[in-house]
Design a protein around this nucleic acid. Structure first.
Lengths: 329, 329
DNA sequence: TTGAAAGCGGTACCAG
DNA sequence: CTGGTACCGCTTTCAA
């Protein structure tokens, strides 16, 4: 592929001059400019950004690590991130860890080799290894979805504790006496632990009975259905369920209906996220709306600030949520 | 940041030696290796991939252009792409055109400057400008979602014509006499034109009445609802609707129900895609399942083949679909 | 087994 | 206004 050198030779000028023309620097005679531009056309010259990056020691690129793209939180989050980054002239490198543990660590390393200016990571959990890898990273890292601020890692999260609290409060005040929580694996602090903690605490504050169950399933409709079916078949009394995610909640509603009961009437069901599906199921799923795209926007801004200022004013950004009442609760 | 040179100085050897140690080349004395490795640790040296890329004239990276990430087709498609690319050791650069016309063209140019080895583009339409930009690109381009093979652009698509044909056949054989199509903007060849063409053709072949309407809305539930409501309020007889996408179909079902009619009984409704939502609405949406992740897999493989062989055996890959009958038709 | 030097494709300083 | 040259960080002969 044609280089500056080739263009220079073709135009009968020096590399310096070609460089000046390309970068629109003043102080080049019009006639020379024309010659150079013609030469550029002629050999189909395309700037080599790799060489520029090396010379300038600046890549204008950002790494994003996701566990998978096809999920509400990540796909919308990535849209939110890319909006801001592209406005700022940053190119996005995407790495998909496909939920394989350890992959994230490799990608942090790889992004450092690629000399990205910063990294945004959608975290599903936090462990010592991850914290160590982030500490080791020369490129600043911002977390989305899990709170790493305890390890001094800037994070953008939703208020998972409070969402649980609100759910507990709501079910309690709606008259439910036998409630429980359908969660996910317990190493997911944000989605499982925090939401459950808030939930239990609300019940305690209201002097209601504590949760009768806390199941640990997957992030899927099928899993929610399964977990709920198990609970129902155990014959314990239930009149309210708080689910860690909307998909789990939808599965729960299916199990409830399958058992001949009516979600929203016999058993109230609440989800989290306000997945588009929540609006189209019957009965409509009452849930808490999370803004995933704004989370991306904010994480991007936070990272840019760290890159530019060396540090960020906020080390942790907690986003609120909206209660979206429908028929299920 | 520490460079080879720094490590060399620290270890008291030459750059060449450090390079050899880093790349695990044989012929370095064990003692020297140890010295070098210690030096690397000491100054926290991280390989500079930018310099390597420049030197080797190879970036091992692929550009992906999407109109947005948060959609079934793109988010699953990107998962499919990244799976194959990451297996092949290719880094993915993501560009989000946010549906802004012209942005795609810029990104093709930008990716060429970044010296990506190939580009995958999720296209919403094809026009002369785009074709020209792709022709200009030194990096090979593969299209997903629209057929560019007429312009000699390798493409991975679903069989949009035949899906329309099947829908027409189905509605006709189910006894519908007054059918129509809810489409999108007409410059979307794959989603609007092809699906409609197949649909009309089936009706013609079966000597059934041609479609009574072909509306042009957006890719959203709200738009489908609106378009269907318009049709219903026009008082024309309708007993079957084929919708360009599942979301449109779900909106249509809402409008039908709102008009006091029963989707699947009074008016049959068919969608395309098998969005997860199709399974959770009531009545369940009958639809054709498209494999978006496989589309990504295949596009990635096709691009890799072009990169490695200089050309691809297949210039166009047409993926099939599965009929998923539910209650709506 | 190791080092010196050239060069990848640019930029930028200094001369002329 | 233009050209020569050094250098960004690494790899790769070629010699020693």
């Amino acid at each position: 592929m044609a280089s500056l050198h080739d263009v220079a030779r073709l135009a009968g000028v020096s590399k310096s001059t070609v460089s000046r023309v390309i970068n629109d620097e003043y102080g080049v005679k019009e006639a020379t400019k024309v010659k150079v531009k013609r030469a550029i056309e002629e050999c189909g010259y395309v700037v080599n950004q790799v060489a520029k990056d090396l010379k300038s020691n600046k890549t204008n690129s950002i790494g994003i690590i996701v566990p998978r793209v096809a999920s509400n939180a990540t796909s919308q989050g990535v849209d939110g991130l890319s909006e801001i980054f592209e406005q700022a002239g940053k190119q996005v490198l995407l790495a998909n860890s496909r939920l394989e543990p350890g992959k994230e660590l490799q990608y942090i390393e790889l992004f450092n080799q690629k000399r990205v200016e910063g990294i945004v990571m959608f975290a599903t959990h936090i462990d010592d290894e991850l914290v160590a890898a982030i500490k080791r990273s020369k490129a600043p890292v911002v977390l989305i979805g899990q709170d790493g601020s305890g390890f001094n890692i800037p994070s953008v999260i939703h208020d998972d504790y409070r969402v649980g609290y609100c759910a507990g409060e709501f079910l309690s005040q709606a008259g439910c006496k036998h409630v429980g929580f359908l969660g996910v694996q317990s190493d997911d602090i944000a989605v499982d632990q925090q939401r459950f903690d808030g939930f239990s605490t609300a019940l305690k504050h209201l002097a209601a009975k504590p949760p009768k169950f806390h199941s640990q399933g997957q992030f899927s409709i099928a899993s929610g259905r399964q977990e709920m079916a198990n609970i129902l078949s155990s014959n314990q009394q239930v009149d309210g369920v708080f689910c860690a995610t909307d998909r789990i909640a939808i599965g729960a509603m299916q199990a409830i209906a399958a058992a001949g009961l009516v979600p929203g009437k016999d058993i109230k069901v609440i989800g989290v996220g306000n997945d588009e599906m929540a609006a189209v199921v019957t009965p409509g799923l009452s849930t808490f709306a999370y803004g995933f795209e704004p989370a991306g926007n904010n994480a991007a801004k936070m990272l840019l600030e760290i890159i530019e200022q060396g540090r960020s004013q906020v080390s942790k950004l907690v986003l609120g949520f909206d209660w979206v009442p429908r028929e299920s609760a």
